[in-house]
Design a protein around this nucleic acid. Structure first.
Length: 421
DNA sequence: TCTGGGGTCCTAGGACCC
DNA sequence: TCTGGGGTCCTAGGACCC
């Protein structure tokens, strides 16, 4: 059996933990650049604020309804996530962290009649340890556990736990679940299925295998089996190595000036280099991209990208910045209103492979590695990037907006929660 | 003025090889 | 009538997830 544990309205819940006055108030959390609403408390959902609503469109509404607004504070959410995961891990032999706010728990060998009770215990303990409310679904496949989780959230809010341990309970959840709410079935497939008179998960499981294979490939077939109670999606207790990694962002405002774009791209490159070092990997190939804003229909549009081969795989910030700027130089055109840029590492290799390369000609490799090690250590100790490369600049005209940022309560000594007594 | 960011997997089709 | 057959590798595009 699989338990799917999912934090309710995770980002909004994190903000509430450190500000109890928000307890029953509508709360939303905005995406990078304060662009869209990406997390909403139940109260905010009840007001009709949709997932992904552009903030500038709902700003008036939000103000007049007393909705509390936060910019994304990923440092805080990441740390809270680690605390939730740590709590969950104590209950089971193995756990798969599926996303920042979700985990599958291995409930293998646990007697059916104890599952509901255990679920409740897990939920209560997470609340006690972290203050984050969770919902739990338990079933014999991952996809059914996901559905059970959603069922618990929607129909058993107070209990927050639902176990599918019989055909009757499985049928109940399948009939309840709209086809588009099934894990693995997105908007395109939901539309296609509805055109074929399939509206619920129960109707979906009755489809012939051939139909699903033909219209939804083997991925759809896996979902079909999973809903029938046959496990078809493997455990991933150890996350597989990344195949690519991106740092790309919208600028805080439109940029046309090459020097400013270079500064932004240098910072994205530095960030990507940091991620590589954190994972003990190096970049072998990268893509640099530069986009205009598709919403500004009055502007001339252009999406430019170039693929860059690195002569030697590296994760040194200086090297990565150099390659990224070389790429940028190839794609930059004057006369466009640029809005977003980024660096994607498209071929990642383990650090150890690079070190073992007999044909390595760059004698500075070891020196650079030590330099970057100290570089990271210093920045880590300050909790921000105090040591920087000159190309990263200090003007930061491209910088993101974050006008509603909460504090990093759990990871920065200068931002601890203070209580007046 | 203002519309997020970061991933994965599968398939079809073309290039190329013997 | 009848235009080989069987592979591999790569890429672009489309679908999905949070």
């Amino acid at each position: 059996m699989y338990a799917m544990v999912d934090c309710n309205n995770f980002y909004a819940s994190c903000e509430r933990v450190f500000n109890p006055t928000l307890a029953d108030k509508p709360v939303i959390v905005l995406s990078n650049n304060d662009g869209c609403a990406i997390a909403r408390s139940d109260e905010a959902k009840a007001l009709g604020i949709e997932m992904g609503s552009p903030y500038f469109m709902i700003e008036e509404f939000v103000r007049s309804h007393g909705v509390k607004v936060f910019s994304s504070n990923y440092t805080l959410y990441g740390d809270m996530s680690a605390r939730v995961m740590e709590t969950l891990a104590a209950f089971v032999p193995r756990l798969e962290m599926y996303s920042i706010d979700e985990a599958f728990l291995d409930m293998h060998n646990m007697p059916y009649h104890t599952l509901e009770k255990l679920g409740k215990k897990i939920k209560a303990t997470v609340t006690q340890h972290t203050g984050i409310p969770v919902s739990i679904g338990i079933a014999c496949t991952k996809t059914l556990a996901k559905l059970a989780n959603r069922f618990a959230k929607k129909t058993k809010k107070q209990i927050g736990v639902h176990v599918i341990d019989s055909d009757q309970k499985r049928n109940e959840v399948l009939s309840y679940t709209q086809i588009g709410d099934v894990w693995g079935i997105g908007r395109q497939y939901a539309n296609m299925l509805q055109r074929n008179n399939v509206h619920t998960a129960a109707e979906f499981v009755a489809l012939p295998d051939d139909f699903v294979r033909a219209h939804m490939s083997v991925v759809g077939l896996r979902t079909l089996y999973e809903l029938r109670g046959i496990p078809a999606i493997e455990w991933e207790f150890v996350p597989p190595p990344r195949k690519n990694t991106t740092t790309g962002r919208s600028f805080g405002k439109i940029l046309t000036d090459k020097a400013q774009i270079e500064e932004a791209v240098s910072n994205y490159a530095a960030n990507v280099a940091f991620k590589l070092r954190r994972d003990n990997t190096c970049a072998q190939e990268m893509t640099v991209f530069l986009h205009t804003n598709p919403f500004r229909t009055e502007d001339r549009q252009g999406n430019f990208a170039v693929h860059v081969q690195l002569s030697t795989a590296t994760n040194a910030t200086g090297d990565i910045i150099q390659y990224a700027l070389k790429g940028l130089n190839l794609i930059y055109r004057p006369g466009f209103n640029f809005h977003k840029a980024g660096v994607t590492i498209t071929k990642i290799v383990p650090e150890t492979v690079v070190q073992a390369n007999l044909f390595e000609t760059d004698t500075n490799v070891e020196k650079k590695r030590k330099l970057m090690h100290s570089f990271d250590a210093v920045n880590r100790s300050f909790g921000r990037d105090v040591v920087r490369f000159s190309k990263q600049g200090y003007e930061r005209k491209w910088k993101l907006r974050a006008e509603h940022l909460s504090k990093r309560y759990t990871t920065n000594f200068n931002e601890l929660l203070t209580i007046k007594i």
